[in-house]
Amino acid sequence: MSLFSGSLQKYGQIDILVSNAAANLSIDPIVSMSEKALDKLWEINVKASIQIVQAAAPFLSDGSSVIFVTSVAAFNPGTGFLNMYAVMKTALLGLTKALAAELAPKTRVNGIAPGFVPTRFSAFLAESAEILAEIESKILLKRLGTTDDMAAAAAFLASDDASYITGETLVIAGGAQSRL
């Protein structure tokens, strides 16, 4: 029985799928990170996104949209203490491209790469005024992102306004450095 079967009997096909799984269990350097932490990071940050698309694929409607939430850190891993998390999010950039090719032309696959957004996930960073000031100093718009900023970007990519966009990752980081 599919993960989606019960809901599909009630609602029909899937038009929009957003994969927003994320975890960062360790701030250890990559060379000393435990295998257990590596496995958990992979399972949550990458494997779960693959499995949700595998489960949903038979039910995606014509013109459907899949959106992965990655991170601005994916474009420049290795610049802080979230190195392995950033590498996992870099994998989602490749997954976006690969699945865009596999699921076209029926389904568009894109990503959004948020900059820093104060959430429960990033609360440990937001507790330090010094860290927040450093983050804001790198943002051209001089403000932190909001969950509404990210939702608007996802809504755009899911909409008909983005009907000719697939295999791309939209950076929503207020102008912060974001390319490999």
Rank of each mutant, 00 (worst) to 15 (best):
A98S: 14
S137T: 11
L93I: 07
S32F: 11
S64T: 03
A48Y: 14
E127K: 14
G63E: 07
A56K: 01
V109Y: 06
L25G: 13
D148P: 01
I27E: 10
S64N: 04
F81M: 02
A126Y: 05
I135Y: 06
L17Q: 04
P58H: 07
K89P: 10
F75K: 05
G145I: 12
R108P: 07
P114D: 07
I131N: 11
N76P: 00
A126S: 14
F81G: 00
G78C: 14
F75H: 08
I131K: 14
E102I: 05
T79V: 13
A126I: 02
S64H: 03
K106I: 01
S71E: 01
N110C: 13
S61D: 04
I139N: 05
A129Y: 06
A23C: 03
A91Y: 08
I50H: 08
Q54M: 10
L95Y: 10
I30K: 06
A133Y: 02
R108T: 13
K40N: 11
A73Y: 09
A86K: 02
V53T: 06
I52C: 02
L92G: 03
L92C: 09
N24M: 14
D148A: 13
N110I: 03
V72Y: 02
K97G: 12
I27D: 09
P118N: 13
I139E: 06
A100E: 03
L125G: 09
I50F: 13
V72P: 01
S26A: 03
S122Q: 05
L60F: 05
E134T: 09
L103D: 00
Q54W: 08
E130L: 03
V87W: 12
L103I: 06
G115L: 09
F59E: 10
A98N: 11
V46N: 01
L25W: 09
I52G: 00
V66Q: 01
A48T: 15
S122C: 05
K97V: 15
T146E: 00
N20F: 14
F116I: 04
A101S: 11
D62R: 07
L17Y: 05
G94H: 10
A37R: 08
Q54K: 15
P105A: 07
M33K: 10
T70D: 10
P105T: 07
T90Y: 12
T107P: 01
N24L: 10
G145M: 12
P118T: 08
A133K: 10
V18M: 12
L17K: 02
S137I: 11
V117W: 07
S49K: 00
L125C: 06
L95I: 08
D15R: 12
L25D: 01
D148T: 10
S137H: 12
S122I: 03
M33W: 05
A91P: 03
A74K: 11
T90V: 06
A55W: 06
L144I: 09
V53F: 01
L60R: 00
S19N: 15
P77S: 11
S61G: 12
L103T: 06
P29A: 13
W42K: 00
L92S: 04
S65R: 03
M88S: 14
S26K: 00
D62Q: 12
L25R: 09
S26E: 04
A23I: 06
A22G: 13
L140G: 12
G63I: 08
A98M: 07
A100N: 05
